[in-house]
Amino acid sequence: MEIERKIRQLIHQYKTDNPFALAEAKNIHVIYGDLGGKLGNYLKYKRSKFILIDDKRTPQDMLNFVCAHELGHALCTPDDNTQWLKTYTMSINANKVEHVANRFAVELLLNDEYISNNKDRSLYDLAKCRGVPEQFIQLKNE
């Protein structure tokens, strides 16, 4: 419930559910580079927060999900520097910190307002449009 409340507040305050726009609004720097196999990473150095995205390996349709996942780390577990995703080996059975970030990403990209504004489409179709991998859809409203 805490994640859903946090997301509702973010969307209300910043008038967007775009993870890149939210990162910018929260002064979290998004940096692109070759991460050597990881699609994304979150890093906190001193008081600055960074989302790192592999611009060579991250599929275009997954950019929002990767950014949303790393934003989840930055906002929900900000003091845990983490690594995420080796190429395509995503696991629904990740550790607690990863689970929180995955839930955050799913709830942000498939937020209740977005779903209610698209009632004529299935949750799976909406997830595909937003780049949410199918195996994570079950985290919606967990």
Rank of each mutant, 00 (worst) to 15 (best):
T16A: 13
D17T: 02
P19D: 11
F20L: 06
F20A: 14
F20S: 12
F20E: 10
A21I: 03
A21W: 03
L22T: 02
L22S: 07
L22V: 08
L22H: 07
A23N: 08
A23Q: 07
E24F: 06
E24K: 13
E24C: 04
A25T: 07
A25D: 05
K26F: 13
N27S: 14
N27Q: 15
N27F: 13
N27M: 14
H29S: 15
V30E: 01
V30W: 01
I31D: 04
G33A: 09
G33L: 12
G33S: 15
G33Q: 14
L35I: 02
L35P: 01
G36I: 13
G37S: 10
G37P: 05
G37A: 12
K38G: 01
K38E: 08
L39D: 01
L39Y: 08
G40Q: 03
G40A: 07
N41K: 12
Y42E: 02
Y42S: 04
Y42N: 05
L43W: 10
L43C: 02
L43Q: 13
L43M: 09
K44A: 03
Y45F: 12
K46Q: 13
R47E: 14
S48P: 01
S48K: 13
F50R: 06
I51N: 00
I51P: 00
I51W: 00
I51K: 00
L52K: 02
L52M: 11
I53G: 00
D54E: 07
D55C: 12
K56L: 15
K56R: 15
K56M: 15
K56Q: 14
R57I: 11
R57T: 03
R57P: 00
T58Y: 01
P59Y: 09
P59H: 02
Q60A: 12
Q60P: 02
Q60E: 13
Q60K: 12
D61K: 12
D61W: 04
M62C: 03
L63C: 00
L63Q: 06
F65E: 00
F65I: 03
V66G: 00
A68F: 01
A68N: 05
H69R: 08
E70L: 04
E70K: 01
E70G: 05
L71A: 04
L71M: 09
G72K: 09
H73K: 04
H73V: 06
H73D: 10
A74E: 01
A74R: 00
L75H: 04
L75M: 11
L75E: 05
C76V: 15
C76I: 14
C76M: 15
T77A: 13
T77P: 02
P78N: 11
P78C: 10
P78M: 05
P78H: 11
D79V: 08
D79M: 08
D80L: 06
D80C: 03
D80I: 05
N81P: 04
N81T: 07
T82A: 11
Q83P: 04
Q83D: 14
W84E: 07
L85G: 01
K86D: 15
T87N: 14
T87P: 09
Y88A: 05
Y88S: 05
Y88P: 01
Y88I: 10
Y88E: 06
M90L: 09
M90F: 10
M90A: 05
S91D: 14
N93W: 06
A94C: 11
A94E: 10
A94F: 01
N95M: 05
K96I: 09
V97A: 13
V97H: 13
E98P: 04
H99M: 06
V100P: 02
A101Y: 05
A101V: 06
N102H: 11
